[in-house]
Every structure is written in C-alpha cells, then in structure tokens.
C-alpha cells in the first residue's frame, strides 16, 4: 500500500525530527548547566575567543568595508533620483546597524568560526578525545563545549559592531570622498536618524541572539556528528546551512518585534 507507506514514512520522519529537537534542547540545557567552568576558569573561554573572534576579524572587516562601499554606490544612485543625496549617511548607517551588520556578520561568522567549531568537535569525537576526557572523569561539555559556546556569544556582537562601523566607513569613502556628498550632511543626517536605543541597542541584541544560535548549532552538529570523516564533513555543511536559515528566520521574528509600526 503506497498510501500507508507514505504515512508511515511521514510518521517516522516526524518522530525523528521531534527526537532530534529534544536531543538538541537537552544538549543546549547541558551547556548552560555546565557553564560554571567557562567563567571560573575564564582562561579557557579567552583561548576560544581568540579562535572564534580574533581569527574571524579579517573576513568581517574586509566584508564590512565592501558592503559599505556597495551600499554607498547603490544608495547614492537611488537617492539621487529623489534629490536627497544628503540622506546617504542615514541610509548606509541604518541598513548596517539594523540589518546588515548583525545578519551578514552572523552569516560570515557561521561559515568561518561555526564550521571550524563543528569540524573540531567532530574530529575530537571521532578520535575519541571526548570519550577519553569522559573516562578521565572530566566532563567534556563543561571543559570543551561550554567555553566555545560562550566565546561565540561574546565574539558575535563585537564582530557585528565592527562590521557596521567598517561598513559606515566604506559608505563614507564612496559617498563623501569619492562622489562628493557633503561631509556635514552625511554625518548629521545619520546622527539625526540613528537612534541609540532603537537602532544600535536593537542591533546588538540581534547579533547577540544570532551568536547564541550559531554557536549552539555548530557545537551540536559537531557533538552529534557520526565519528567518521564523512560524518564530520556532512556535519560541517549542515552547520552552515542550518545556521544561515536560522539566522534569517530569527531576523524576521526579531525585526517584526523590534521595528513594528515605529
């Protein structure tokens, strides 16, 4: 019976999916529960901030600059037809602070630091390093996973803020230095329209949420990866795909909550 088989298939998949969500939630709860070590021995977390944050700097800064430059060029073309080139600063800054900084920053972070995290944890699992740790009566979640999680949560807002700043600078380079929009109105229009609480703080909150999501997904995929070369490579791919989708989905939700009707 093909119908029965389809339904059975659907049922199987649903059960699998629910089980996996439950497993992931439990993993996330374990991270939070075993976070004491990450702060008591902050050196562990600092070391991971180096690998997740500092090592992602170059890609974030370069990408931020390019995005700012493109925003400057495109924004100028559009605004010119309304005769409001002076609003270029506003356009560049608002797009970056509210959306592009947190979202693009998080997407880059997922593909740079997130995938590296998944591969590292997956390999540690495949080479029985996590099992070895457990047999030494050291909890790998508190010693290996949690410090990486917190490093991601710390790094993400910092990287997003840098992305925005470099992007605004890129917009300034194109708008003011290259095209010749008035320097004064560029900055004053920007300052008049970018509200600290409404725009900057909300942007930071967004990147913070993305940081939690990306790191949690990366670590879970690594921890859950089948202990083979193929398993780890699949998990790495899944990290990037899942993180990107979750970032964009969360962005829709957060934007709707933060900027609705204001």
């Amino acid at each position: 019976m093909p119908v029965a088989r389809t339904i059975r298939n659907l049922g199987h998949r649903t059960v699998e999916a629910v089980w996996r969500i439950g497993y992931a939630s439990r993993f996330f709860a374990m991270i939070l529960l075993h976070s004491g070590t990450s702060f008591r021995r902050f050196q562990l977390t600092i070391k991971e901030v180096y690998f997740t944050g500092v090592m992602s700097l170059v890609i974030i800064l370069v990408a931020g600059l390019f995005v700012g430059v493109v925003l400057g060029l495109q924004g100028y073309e559009t605004l010119k037809s309304y005769g409001s080139e002076s609003s270029l600063g506003e356009l560049v800054a608002l797009s970056l602070v509210r959306e592009l900084g947190p979202v693009l920053g998080a997407l880059l972070f997922a593909s740079r630091a997130g995938s590296a995290m998944t591969a590292e944890i997956g390999l540690m699992k495949a080479t029985e390093q996590l099992a070895a740790m457990e047999m030494m009566s050291i909890n790998p979640i508190s010693r290996v996973i949690a410090p990486r999680f917190w490093s991601g949560v710390i790094s993400m807002p910092i990287l997003a803020a840098m992305f925005s700043v470099v992007g605004v600078f890129g917009g300034y380079l194109v708008g003011v230095v290259y095209i010749g929009v008035d320097n004064g109105s560029f900055w004053s229009q920007m300052q008049a329209s970018v509200d600290f609480q409404h725009d900057v703080v909300n942007g930071v909150i967004k990147s913070f949420v993305f940081g939690i999501a990306v790191t949690a997904i990366s670590l879970f995929e690594g921890y859950d990866a089948p202990p083979t070369a193929e398993g780890v490579s699949h998990a790495t791919t899944r990290t990037v795909v899942e993180s990107s989708l979750v970032i964009l989905m969360l962005d829709v939700v957060l934007t709707a909550v933060m900027f609705r009707g204001v």
């Binding site: 390999l123 540690m124 080479t127 029985e128 390093q129 099992a131 070895a132 740790m133």
Partner: peptide, 9 residues
C-alpha cells in the same frame, strides 16, 4: 588508553 591514543590535538 584508547585505540589511537586520543591525545588532545
């Protein structure tokens, strides 16, 4: 002692 040592890389 694990099969391939499982040293922390």
């Amino acid at each position: 002692l694990f099969q391939f040592g499982a040293l922390f890389t």
